[in-house]
């Protein structure tokens, strides 16, 4: 037998072993932290998840490609592994820590493998153990890759959430919403502002939307353009947009830049903008006559 054939037959034997001992391995793994920490509802759930991983490993072993992390044998468990690493990541575990937990799965199975072997000193036994170690190394890499990707996704999600948190849509009155803008407006943030304002208009059935820029330090032509686009989009949806809080310095810049904000309805303050919207809605606000 050539070396290649030896490796392949060892891998196939390993696959057969994993299939045969599926139940026992799953029972042992279910108590390992990697699974126990994630599948907290019932032990049964953890055992099922373990079985899925054992099946995947058996499939990869039988295909003879022990060290191929792209092996289609892993496809059936990639989603499950993704959810598991997500759960670990949320608990604050680093990808390296998760990989360590995967490595800890090796020894319970290695014990079983040794016990199966009629002659632990024979070369077949050592080859079997070596093949299994290689296979677990591959699983560890697959999990690590999943964890790294899910980390990137987490950062992106948090960045997006931060953008959204920074631009709340507030209901001021029935039919009137406002977005108080604070800080510098860049292109990405302007996009989020526009989308959340328009979504807010739909959600609250608002006829008037106020964009308050009191807290915006500078308005350049790009920001002005975004403001005008937001106003135009709101109008297409059937709502009127009012820009409030243009400070004198900003008004000067706008004029100096030659930006024509005339299609945009402006008011000096948020209060003025609200008063305008209320009067358009036919609502009168007056001080209560003194009863004392």
């Amino acid at each position: 037998m050539s070396e290649q054939e030896t490796v392949e037959s060892t891998a196939r034997r390993l696959g057969a072993f994993l299939e045969l001992r599926r139940e026992q391995i799953a029972q042992r793994w279910a108590d390992a932290p990697l699974f126990r920490t994630v599948f907290t509802v019932s032990r049964e759930e953890a055992v099922e998840a373990c079985k899925a991983v054992v099946d995947a490993l058996a499939g990869v072993a039988s295909s003879g490609r022990l060290e191929d992390i792209t092996s289609s044998g892993f496809d059936s468990v990639r989603d499950q592994l993704g959810r598991m690493t997500d759960a670990w990541t949320r608990m604050g575990a680093s990808p390296a820590r998760i990989a360590d937990e995967v490595a800890a799965l090796r020894s319970p199975v290695a014990e079983l493998l040794r016990a199966e072997s009629p002659d632990p000193a024979a070369p077949e036994a050592a080859e079997g153990l070596l093949a299994f170690t290689a296979l677990m190394g591959t699983l560890r890499l697959v999990v690590m890759q999943t964890a790294l990707t899910s980390g990137e996704e987490l950062i992106e999600r948090q960045r997006q959430q931060l953008l959204e948190v920074a631009t709340p849509v507030i209901s001021l009155w029935e039919g009137v919403v406002a977005v108080p803008l604070i800080g510098t407006l860049d292109s990405a943030r302007s996009q989020v502002v526009m989308e959340s304002l328009l979504e807010g208009i739909v959600a609250r059935r608002a006829q008037y939307a106020i964009l308050d820029i009191t807290g915006v330090p500078t308005v350049d032509s790009l920001v002005a353009q975004h403001l005008m686009k937001t106003v135009a989009a709101a109008r297409l949806m059937g709502a009127e947009c009012i820009v409030s809080g243009i400070r004198p310095a900003i008004a000067q810049t706008i004029v100096q830049l030659g930006i024509d904000l005339s299609p945009v309805l402006t008011r000096a303050s948020l209060a003025d903008a609200l008063a305008y919207a209320l009067s358009r809605l036919g609502i009168e606000v007056s001080p209560r006559a003194s009863t004392r």
């Binding site: 792209t70 697959v142 890759q145 999943t146 950062i155 997006q160």
Partner: peptide, 10 residues
């Protein structure tokens, strides 16, 4: 925009 939600290359 940003990181895709899929896991390319996995």
């Amino acid at each position: 925009p940003g990181v895709p939600t899929a896991r390319p290359g996995l």
